[in-house]
Structures are given as C-alpha cells and as structure tokens.
Design a protein around this nucleic acid. Sequence first.
DNA 1: ATGTATCTAGACTAATGAGTCTATAAAGGA
DNA 2: TCCTTTATAGACTCATTAGTCTAGATACAT
Lengths: 192, 192
Amino acid sequence: MARTKEFDPEQALAAAMNVFWRLGYENTSLDILMHEMGIARQSLYDTFGDKRALYLKALAYYRDESHASLRRLFSSVRPVKAAFRKLLLDLSAESRAQHARGCLLLSANMERDSGDAIIAKLLLQNQRTVESIFTDALRKAQKAGELSRNQDPASLARFFVATIQGMRAMARIKSDRKALESVASVALAALE
Amino acid sequence: MARTKEFDPEQALAAAMNVFWRLGYENTSLDILMHEMGIARQSLYDTFGDKRALYLKALAYYRDESHASLRRLFSSVRPVKAAFRKLLLDLSAESRAQHARGCLLLSANMERDSGDAIIAKLLLQNQRTVESIFTDALRKAQKAGELSRNQDPASLARFFVATIQGMRAMARIKSDRKALESVASVALAALE
DNA sequence: ATGTATCTAGACTAATGAGTCTATAAAGGA
DNA sequence: TCCTTTATAGACTCATTAGTCTAGATACAT
C-alpha cells in the first residue's frame, strides 16, 4: 500500500458543484475549479475524470441533495398547502446572490445543446422524481382530507414544477421579493 | 456614391436571430452565422459589429417581434381568458424543434454571466413590457366585466409571465403536449 | 471610363482553455 | 530503507474561435 488520499472527494465535489452553480458550465475554467476545489490538476483528472464527467457528477450530487431536501420538507410540514407555501416563500426570500445563481439543473437545461442525450436523460428523470414527490404528498393530503378529491394531484404536481422554474427565471432577472410572493400567492390558490 | 448594399440587413438579422435561438450564444460560431446569414465575414462585421453586438441586435429584434405578437393576440381575441388559453395551448402544441429551441430571451437569461449588466437591463425591460401588456389586457377585462374585480391584474400578469417561462423550461426537456396542457389548465383556473 | 464603396474568399493573428506530460515531494506499508 | 501511490506545480500540446487583414471582383454614380 501507499499514501492515502488527502482531500475529501465529496467535499471537493461539493466545491465543484458550487462553482458550476454560480458560473455555469461554459464559464467555469479548469483553473477556477482547481482553485475552488483546493486540489491540483492531476488529482482532479485522476479522481473525477474530465471536465464533463465532473460536471455530470456535480449535477447528480445537486439532484440528490435537492430531492432529499424536498422529501424532508413534505414529511415535516403539514398540511401540504403549508409545505408548498414554505417552498415558494423561501424561494422568494432568497438573497440576490442565491437568486442570481438560480437552480443548477434549470441552468443545465437551458445551457445544454438540445442534442445532449445524457444530460437530457438526467433532467427528465429529475423532473419525474420531483413530480412524484409532489404527487405523493398531494395524494396523501387528499386521503387526509386536506385537499379536495376533485383536484388532480399529477396536474398540480406538474404545475408546481413549472411554477418554481418560472419563479427562478424571474428571480434571476430581478430579486423582487414582493413580486415573487405575489406570483406564489396566485399559484398557491390552485390548492384551494 | 458607390455600390449599394446587396443583402437585406433585416433578413440577415432574422437569420442570425434564428441561429442564436437554436444554438445559444456560445454554441454559434462566426462560421455558422456567415453561412446562415448568407454573407461574408467582412460584411457581417461592417454591418453589425462584432458577435456580441449582433447578438444584442438579435435579442432586440426577437423582443420586438414577440411584443408585437402578444399585442396582436390580446387585441384580436376576447375575452382575455380565451387569449391566455390560446397562448398557453399554442405553446403546448409546438413541435419538438420549437420546444427544443424554447425562448431566446429565457435562454439569454440563463446563459448569461449574472454580472452582464447590458443583457440584464434588456431582460428586465422586456419582462416589464410583457407584464404591462398582460396587465392592460386584464384591466380592460375587468372593465368589461369579464374578470372579477377581486383579482389583482398585476399579480396575475406576473404569474403568467412566470408560468410561461416554466412551461418553456419543461417543454425543452420533453415535448409532452398533454402534460403541458394540464399545466396550462391549472394556470388558467387562476382567471376564474 | 473612372472612382468609390461593397462584396467575397480566405489567410493570418492572438487568445483561450482542455487535457497530457514531466519532475518532484511526501506519506505510509513491507 | 525502499517501493508504491498520491499529491503538487507547471510546462506543453492542440484545437477552437473571434477578430483583423489582404486581394480581387462587382456594381453604380458621375
């Protein structure tokens, strides 16, 4: 055996994710990555592969964290309406820097070449997972009598996926909390 | 006097706009632009300036066309609910290629460096204009008794701006017409 | 006809940036 | 101690691409 790894790969990956999140794929150079991850060029290539491989790992990491966060939200706050309200209101209240960086997966979607099948697949699966998290929560709410049986959970879930992306796009242009909250307010009325 | 311009600058600009629309700023090279615009390198630089200047002209052209189209819609179809329905349903029914290219200004928003003040300003002004087109239409609808006085036109306008962007982001991932229509359906209920 | 401006074709420059390679130091097991 | 592996630093290659420059053809006004 020989020398053991010195840096923490997960921590380095998280750092890389944050760079991509802040700057986008095209605008992050290897130099910036090396600097922010705190490792040298060779370690980066040895541990994560090339730039694209690192990017894909960062997307997956972001996705997993974001799903975990959503599941935590819906399992901890009730009724669902309150959970959706918290989701949209927290988004509205983010800082300018947070609004400017937006959502890594939304950026990946818009930035990518439309023929990029690998990223397309990751994004589609992500969308389905988020929809199903929302759908499950809404269905449970129906069973608990929190939500009318006349509502279609799948449609509402898709609607909120779209709404969140729309709000993120708006927030990137201008961090106007009240404006975002008024959008949230109209959207949340869909649950009444 | 001397030789007159041979190509139509507006037609060339429209061609450039379509390239940026389909490929994004980073992914369109001067070679592709020259080819699609049907003019030589030197003519391009003489007439439009450098790549970024051409891009900004393309964004402005797109914005103007898109505003004109929206105004046409709201002045020609009544009641407003029907106009919004047509807007969202037409979007849902676009072809795969149309969904893949999405909206040039949304792409510009997500692709840009967040410190790019010139594009930021153009996007903000665009958002305000679209909001005001929607707001005006909704206010007129209130006066005509088509829409409840309890609704806030400005909030609804912002909500639809966000919804459209969210739907465009979804459509880029997958052209699922029924799914998009179900989102549209939930969103349109906000006008009831 | 001549001059002037516009066009095309394509060579050329310069910068950027991803990925490879070399040299060298340090850590730990045998 | 010696060997293997991981690390760092930085030189180097190679491809891409924006932007400039040169040469020559073409159209139109005077």
